[in-house]
């Protein structure tokens, strides 16, 4: 009998896990809440650190899922877990031999950091808004003009107890470096300032890109967190920070403020954890069985994880993890059915 695995989530993690399972002769079924596959990466314009168009990575995966005739239940959500599969909100029972949770993350809602004026002032945007603007072909201020001075703020909704987000979102530092370079390429005469608490360049080529941003693109990195933003009388944004490397307060006005919003645990994790009897880590992400040898396993046999459901991850990390998850599932199914 062909083993069947339900994959919850049709983003990069879910799709890639499905393809990996399929190539191992296991039948995956993807359950996706949206009406389309692709998840968060769909909004992305280019990927760090290589500036590869996001669609160059995502589209071939989507195409392959379609051409391999992997069953996708779109616009469907899992309500609860049964002994032998999952039950959807539509009450449909989908039988399965194992389940992979690939539900990803939620974006931090920048409105919650009211002091930065997102949704209040023109030209305070998030990193995701900027990607969408780039996807739409034009980045500009609310009045249609070009920005001459831009500030990019790191750690918005990350490493911040005030909004109950203690963790580091891992990918926003390198995203900030990438976006600063893209802005400089679009507006070569503009001044771009990155305000950071720490710069975390964890991946291959990241530190090199950071240095290029500094030295080749003349992007200013100021170590200090913006404490507040206010709109000026001429529709610019005044920001305040400490320039901690000189030990003095710093003030300036900019035309555009980009907030590097963090990756929060998926809003639905609590409900899903309760329904599946799984536990969450203190930061709200799913708790893996072990940090080293059980990184894609849950505490319950037969339930696995892939991608950013367990922690903030880059797209590269996520795609790599998909094959780890698929081999763990394969091993589990083999043991389960050989022992019978």
């Amino acid at each position: 009998m062909a083993k069947r695995v339900v994959i919850v989530g049709g983003g990069a993690a879910g799709m890639q896990t499905a393809l990996e399972l399929k190539s191992r002769g296991i039948e995956p079924i993807i359950i996706e809440r949206d009406m389309d596959l692709g998840g968060k990466v769909r909004d992305w314009h280019k990927l760090f650190p290589s500036f590869t168009p996001a669609s160059d990575v995502l589209q071939p995966i989507i195409d392959k899922v379609r051409s391999s005739r992997i069953r996708c239940l779109l616009g469907q959500e899992v309500k609860t877990f049964a002994e032998d599969g999952v039950i959807l909100r539509s009450e449909e029972h989908v039988p399965a031999d194992a389940v992979v949770i690939a539900t990803g993350f939620s974006l931090f809602d920048a409105h919650r950091k009211q002091e930065y004026g997102y949704g209040l002032y023109h030209n305070v945007i998030t990193s995701v808004d900027l990607e969408r603007m780039m996807n739409n072909g034009r980045v500009m201020l609310a009045d249609g003009t070009e920005p001459r001075r831009i500030a990019i703020l790191h750690c918005v909704g990350s490493r911040d107890e005030k909004v109950c987000q203690k963790h580091c979102s891992k990918v926003c530092c390198i995203t900030g470096v990438k976006q600063a370079i893209e802005l400089k390429q679009m507006f070569p005469t503009a001044d771009v300032f990155n305000f950071y608490m720490d710069i975390r360049m964890f991946g291959p080529g990241y530190e090199e890109l950071y240095r290029e941003a500094q030295q080749r693109y003349n992007i200013h990195f100021v170590r200090g967190r913006i404490s507040e933003a206010a709109q000026t009388i001429n529709d610019r944004i005044q920001i305040k920070a400490e320039d901690t490397l000189t030990g003095r307060p710093l003030r300036m006005s900019v035309d555009m403020l980009v907030l590097l919003v963090g990756m929060s645990a998926n809003r639905d994790n609590e409900a899903l954890a309760a329904a599946s009897n799984l536990s969450l880590a203190p930061n709200g992400y799913f708790q893996t069985k072990d940090s080293f040898l059980g990184a894609v396993q849950s505490e319950r046999p037969g339930i696995f994880y892939a991608g950013a459901a367990t922690a903030p991850k880059s797209l590269a990390d996520t795609l790599a993890e998909a094959s780890m998850t698929a081999s763990a599932v394969e091993r589990y199914l083999r043991d389960k059915y050989n022992n019978r």
Partner: peptide, 29 residues
């Protein structure tokens, strides 16, 4: 006032220094 005010500071000399020595911007403090 101790505030560094980047709206009022005359950045021409600073820009000239960076233009002559772009590597200075690579300082990581």
């Amino acid at each position: 006032p101790r505030v560094i005010n980047l709206d009022n500071n005359d950045l021409r000399k600073s820009n000239a220094i960076i233009a002559e020595m772009p590597e200075l911007q690579a300082c990581i403090g």
